[in-house]
Design a binder for these strands. Structure first.
Lengths: 116, 116
DNA sequence: GATACTTGTATCCTAAAGGATACTTAATTC
DNA sequence: GAATTAAGTATCCTTTAGGATACAAGTATC
């Protein structure tokens, strides 16, 4: 590390990355966003579209995403009450994160196949 | 979800993102890469440059990154044996992930300040 | 031979993430 | 009034991530 200035910028960098990891990291958050983004609005549809996720985990992730202003939850007062989850405009910015992650994942899958 | 084709592509997307999360996710992996990238080569230097990381965690992360071909470990047979960690060429591709994560983290910091 | 330095490991612990599965609530239709 | 449907919650459990702290091995120097 060359000097104080670089060091400060380095620590800001780390903090920003860790913040993103907190909001979008983990196994399920981006998959849930993508599911809603690709047209699934209802709890059971979202659950059904993501292989391996359980009710409990999905429920938690939806709350987390709502708190972070990424999705919104609408109650539709019909026969059996329906809930609709939708992506917020702000959430569209996460594409800038999801796309590179997807791309790199595919690169790395290839890389590891080459190794093994 | 419109059809089988979209559904298959959607599941590949999820898998790729989850793979990246496994390799580069969590609180420390990208910070460690960035630290080495910005010139820290030795264990104690890396540890000192990343606020809050402990020996045990750093040691684990270094192993994980080496297994995933992102850094390499060289033993320098000197007085007290020195170890040098360096970024592999392949690791440079992670910039495509780190940069967007950093950028989005800063956007989100602003967004939440606006909310509160 | 005591001391110091470097790279870790060992031990033990807490917290967070994730998972399995059953159940609740409320309205509605039959 | 039994059955169905939707959106979760409740309960309990396992696994993984992360953290605090001590100290060990090897060599060189004093």
């Amino acid at each position: 590390m060359k000097n104080k200035h670089n060091e400060r910028r380095f620590k800001e960098k780390i903090k920003a990355i860790q913040d993103t990891m907190f909001v979008l990291g983990g196994k399920w958050k981006l998959p849930v966003i993508l599911s809603i983004y690709s047209g699934n609005k209802r709890f059971n549809d979202i659950a059904g579209s993501i292989p391996g996720i359980t009710n409990r985990v999905l429920s938690k992730e939806l709350k987390h995403l709502e708190e972070n202003l990424l999705i919104s939850r609408t109650v539709i007062d019909d026969y059996p009450v329906r809930i609709e989850y939708t992506i917020t405009d702000y959430c569209l910015t996460t594409e800038e994160v999801a796309a590179p992650l997807e791309k790199w994942g595919k690169i790395h899958q290839k890389k590891l196949r080459g190794k093994a």
